[in-house]
Design a protein around this nucleic acid. Structure first.
Lengths: 139, 139
DNA sequence: AGTTAATTGGTACTTTAGTATGACTCCCAA
DNA sequence: TTGGGAGTCATACTAAAGTACCAATTAACT
């Protein structure tokens, strides 16, 4: 909200400055009224575009690719377990995950079991669903 | 792109109209220069806001909750198979899905096998992943 | 130095998941 | 009316997934 206050302040200041400049210039006959109006028009068109852009940017990140790191550690999920979780969500088997992470299938199974406990899931598919709900993996 | 052309045309027309109005009003001494400038400023501020809004709206629909019905039928996935697919994505076991849809686990297995064939997946987790990529199930 | 958590790996076992095949019913379009 | 797709179910099998315990190593912390 600080930004909004700043923008409107700048807007008012700009308005006053332009008033004075245009008055002064006109009185002296230096500048044509068309020029003054054009400058005003362009400036405020630009302000309108800028304000709208900075507002619309806030609405774009509706997709939750923002991973909640706090929840991961709150659940006690370790670095390695998390890596396994990501591979599970991609649809890989335990064997494939083992090959990817350079560990045996046995190790992967251990990690998976721990993940299921920590996410309170009965199956890996349920773990995927819960992890996405908790926003700890990208959807 | 038609909209953009329209907007810029309207912009130019508005500019010309304002030129004439301001000239005429000033010559007659009816209106103060401050008023003219204020009107110009407000009008172009409004234009700036409007143009960017209609542009940014096009970028918003990045979320894909829109299910592609055409792809489902293109893949030859039947109504019942699709129902099973949705339950798989929710993390249910074959037995649980059977209870939900009032069929035996055996029937669910048949459906699952067909789904895996049609989605070219080796596992149900991979089927979930592919289905989400194809936007045939909500993410 | 001792403790703890994380990572790794193994064995043995149970439970799901998935495949293959066959069969029955229902309904719809040719 | 008949062929085919969709849906249902069963059996028998193989393949993954998951559980339970145990154990060794390493890095970090006290």
């Amino acid at each position: 909200m600080k930004k909004t206050v700043f923008i409107f302040s700048a807007l008012i200041v700009a308005l006053l400055i332009l008033f004075q400049i245009s008055k002064y210039s006109y009185v002296n006959g230096d500048v044509a009224i068309e020029t003054i109006i054009s400058v005003i028009a362009v400036v405020f068109l630009g302000i309108g575009l800028y304000v709208n852009k900075s507002n619309s940017k806030k609405h774009i990140p509706r997709n939750n690719n923002i991973i909640d790191q706090n929840k991961i550690s709150a659940l006690g999920i370790s670095k390695r377990e998390y890596e396994v979780l990501l591979e599970i969500a991609k649809g890989f088997s335990n064997k494939e995950i083992g090959e990817k992470l350079f560990v045996t299938e046995s190790t992967v199974k251990t990690h998976v079991s721990n993940i299921l406990l920590k996410l309170e899931a009965k199956r890996r598919t349920q773990a995927i669903q819960k992890a996405k709900e908790l926003q700890i993996i990208p959807s």
